[in-house]
Amino acid sequence: MKDPVVQFRDVNLSYGSRMVLQDFNIEIPSQQVVGILGPNGSGKSSFFRLIMGLNQPDDGEIAVLGHSPGWRNNHQIAYLPDRARWYGNHTVEGAIQWGGDLLPGFDSMKAKELAEWMEIDSSMRIDEMSKGQEARLMLIMCLARKVPLIILDEPFTGIDTHSRERIMDALIDYVTEGEQTILISTHEIYEAEGLFDSVFLINEGQVALSGEAELLRAEHGSMMQLVKKMSHGGRGL
């Protein structure tokens, strides 16, 4: 067993008086597609932000790829933020140029291939795109990087079916080729759950259930149904 990619020990996080993560413990195995599932507001995005060092925990220990989180560590992580938009004044080409200039491990050729394959016109301006097209571009900005860890926060939310399928295909393609660890959070898309090697269900700031996806399926059935149960007031499992 390799060292875990992400390790949290007794982490607490609060915004003002609101507890977001409470005694949060997790160990994410490497080289897998990992689903971080849970209802809205369960703490998934906060968990990711802690991994990126964008927010600071109240206490507890965090190790990401063997280091403490922060900008010094982020050259080896590709991160799709929650509800993000891309810079509206860029064209697709401009965004790829930006990636090549600023993102370590960004492969501009690969990005161009992906753009073509995802049916994104490279001269198009981002502020003239549909939400789905923009989402596809943002995914390209992450998948074109050669880094050991990729974090996608809600990559499917609010996106048309066509874009969603394109994104799924790109992810599957990526997993077939690579040896990266991919963390994907989602709270709604049933179809995405076939992607996961392992799954962590998060509820009310804690890991409520975790394990290999196939084993969880055998024991509990569909994971999205579990999430739904949690979000409809079913506290605990």
Binding site: V33, E165, M168, I172, D173, T176, A192, G194, A213, E214
Partner: peptide, 15 residues
């Protein structure tokens, strides 16, 4: 191929 089937079924290629 593994890729084709995985993409067709929308599941993890490892499976």
């Amino acid at each position: 191929s593994v890729r084709e089937l995985a993409q067709g079924l929308k599941i993890n290629p490892n499976t």
